[in-house]
Design a protein around this nucleic acid. Structure first.
Length: 670
DNA sequence: TTATTATTAAACAATT
DNA sequence: GAATTGTTTAATAATA
């Protein structure tokens, strides 16, 4: 009996999509969770009107409170994605965090949307990037705060000279309190990171860095020493420089150390000065470099800077525009910060969902496989009940899931990449068609991301028809009952373990709608088969550029060209997926990539999946009576994954050649 | 702008 | 009678 209780159906309306998101723009939402910073209750008073009748100490307190408030707000924004603009913007330029509400609306992107936007490897890369960025940002922020504290201390010192009656102990105490507050903020932020899974901790070490870090950063002896040096007759700049750097180094090193220590997957190496660098994937690093003729912020003739969309005719003009309009200033910095927060929110959501998945997996008694950098929550099942033999899946040792060949392709085509309120709704209900194109042969994609899709609640980027066809073709008999198709969906994709009412209806609808699915009556019921001929007709090639190109590529260049095109796409993700690098034909590959992914996809997909599973069967099922199997649906569940493994391997390696030869006579390609 | 395709929802009938 | 299976229609969105 299918469990239909998971009625949390994702509606196609953007409002419903947004409603799923647990993100909140309400300050209290985040404040309740992460805003428990000590002394937070007084911020309201501190944030009140500054009447200019304060004593120097009060003024100092006020300033410190303001700094702390800003700091807290910033951290809360970091942790919870609050978009409330800082009310102290003008008063605290050193830590101004202007946040545009409109700019923050990307936070409403749901995890599902994000998953649809980003392919598994992109999610992974994004997370890693953001981890490093956030840590770096955190370090910089604390550094600023430390410097600011020193400045305030100097001010205090001068004030103390002017008013020697002011007891030094109070100021010292206030300063210590402030440092402690900062320290607690720091703690809390790191705790948030850890709790959200952004900084993963090895078992048994969860609290060690957290506790040791702030103490190491600001221990009482440090405070004493700091106070001594600040109150001494040291030059101001020296004081700031020395102590600030010391503290910063201390803090940063601690942060970096903890991050690097507790989260080995993060390529995050502390430098002596406390700054940190990260090893970004090659694809990312290359994307940040200005390669001739392209720029990551330039596309489709317009500037991709958030909220800009300025039209630039060529790259030169764009660079000029970039240097003039988006130079290093407060605005750009703020926008960059906002963008980071946007991404971070997505990351947080992903972490939450991953955590949820882990809990689900744990609940279902699925033991995690070997830890992986950030796909760890996505590769929990290696040999659980749902999967019979995943070790058979990729015996070639290739770095398969979730690194995908579609990584740079699928999501990045999602409309304008400019994040603005006007374009945000584009990432709402994303059609599966997108990724059904763009060089995504379903069998290969499934082979590479088999584990990913099976364990992660990510919607597979294929149409229902493609999936149904794949399900049917994977069976030796190439026929499935409806229930078996259901089972295949739920077995292969975690996503389809929920919203059953929705996708099952869609499956039935597709089976009935498309002529490529042929229903064959049986004594015990009916099974569904695939009419490959109809399936190919279902998506007539739209290759407008060169109608003969497909034939040339297939018959002339052979599968090498197809493979090359695929590899060319893969090359962008620096992922050596296919094991025949010598087959790259750059010209044909680029030609194919430019002609149209849809056709490539369909062609490859056809080539890949047709006949690869059971070569002994003729693909012309539509013209022959189908042998109706009689075994019960449940009995075959255990045996099918094995065949799938063999299938997926063949698809990636040698089966395609054979399949190509078999499929070459198909006349529908022209 | 239009046509095509995919998705989702829903109603309904037939079957189990 | 309930659940499942299968068909059909419609609305909506994305894309060519």
């Amino acid at each position: 009996m299918m469990v239909e209780s998971a009625s949390e159906t994702i509606r196609s309306t953007p409002s419903a999509q947004n409603g799923v998101s647990s993100l909140s723009n309400q300050p209290d939402a985040g404040g309740g969770a992460a805003g428990a910073a000590p002394g937070g209750g007084r911020d309201g008073a501190a944030g009140a009107e500054a009447n200019g009748e304060m004593s120097p100490v009060e003024l100092l307190h006020f300033q410190q409170q303001q700094a702390l408030q800003v700091a807290r707000q910033f951290l809360l924004q970091q942790a919870t994605g609050l978009s409330s603009p800082s009310s102290n913007e003008g008063k605290q330029p050193a830590v101004q965090v202007p946040v545009s509400v409109a700019m923050m609306s990307p936070q409403m992107i749901t995890p599902q949307q994000m998953q649809q936007i980003l392919s598994p490897p992109q999610l992974q890369a994004l997370l890693q990037q953001q981890q490093a960025i956030m840590l770096q940002q955190l370090q910089e922020y604390y550094k600023k705060q430390q410097e600011q504290l020193h400045l305030q201390l100097l001010t205090q010192q001068q004030a103390g000279k002017q008013q020697p009656k002011e007891p030094l102990g109070n100021k010292q105490l206030a300063f210590q309190q402030q440092l402690l507050q900062m320290q607690q903020l720091q703690q809390q932020h790191l705790l948030n990171l850890q709790r959200q899974g952004l900084v993963s901790l090895p078992p048994g070490q969860g609290t060690v860095p957290l506790q040791s870090l702030p103490q190491a950063a600001v221990c009482p002896s440090d405070l004493q020493q700091l106070w001594k040096e600040v109150t001494a007759t040291q030059p101001v700049e020296d004081s700031i420089k020395q102590e600030g750097l010391d503290l910063t180094t201390n803090t940063s090193n601690s942060t970096s150390f903890s991050a690097a220590k507790v989260s080995p997957p993060i390529s995050h190496h502390p430098l002596p000065n406390g700054q940190s660098t990260m090893h970004t994937p090659r694809r990312d690093s290359s994307s940040h470099e200005e390669t001739p003729g392209s720029h990551p912020l330039y596309g489709h003739g317009e500037c991709k800077w958030p909220g800009c969309e300025t039209l630039c005719e060529d790259l030169g003009q764009f660079v000029k525009h970039l240097n003039t309009e988006h130079a290093l200033d407060d605005r750009s910095t703020a926008q960059c910060r906002v963008q980071m927060q946007v991404v971070q929110q997505l990351e947080i959501q992903l972490a939450k969902e991953s955590e949820r998945l882990q809990a689900m997996m744990a609940h279902l008694h699925m033991r995690p496989s070997e830890p992986k950098p950030f796909s760890q929550p996505l590769n929990l099942v290696s040999s659980a009940s749902l999967s019979k033999s995943t070790s058979d899946t990729f015996p070639d040792g290739l770095p398969h899931p979730p690194t995908s060949a579609t990584a740079p392709i699928t999501p990045l085509r999602q409309g304008p990449s400019v994040i603005s309120s006007s374009t945000l709704h584009n990432v709402g209900p994303i059609r599966r068609r997108n990724s059904d194109k763009f060089c995504t042969p379903i069998s290969s994609e499934l082979a590479q991301n088999h584990e990913f899709y099976k364990n992660a609640d990510v919607r597979p980027p294929f149409t229902y028809a493609s999936l149904i066809r794949q399900a049917i073709l994977e069976t030796p008999d190439r026929q499935l009952t409806l229930n078996e198709i259901y089972n295949w969906f739920t077995r292969m994709f975690a996503y389809f373990r929920r919203n059953t009412a929705t996708w099952k209806n869609a499956v039935r609808h597709n089976l009935s709608l498309h002529k490529c699915f042929v229903r064959v009556e049986n004594v015990k019921g009916a099974v569904w088969t695939v009419d490959e001929h109809e399936y190919q007709k279902r998506r007539p090639p739209k290759m407008t550029g060169s109608p003969t190109l497909v034939k040339n590529m297939i018959s002339g260049l052979g599968y090498g060209a197809l493979n090359a095109s695929y590899q060319a796409a893969l090359a962008e993700s620096s992922f050596p997926l296919l094991n025949s690098p010598t087959m790259i034909n750059t010209s044909s590959a680029s030609a194919m990539l430019h002609v149209g992914h849809d056709d490539v996809s369909s062609t490859v997909e056809q080539v890949n999946s047709n006949g690869s599973n059971s070569p002994r069967l003729s693909p012309q099922q539509y013209s022959h009576p189908v042998h109706v199997k009689e075994e019960p649906a449940e009995a075959e569940e255990d045996s099918r994954p094995v065949s799938l493994m063999a299938t997926t391997n063949q698809n990636v390696t040698i089966a395609d050649d054979r399949d190509l030869e078999e499929e070459l006579p198909v006349e529908d390609l022209s």
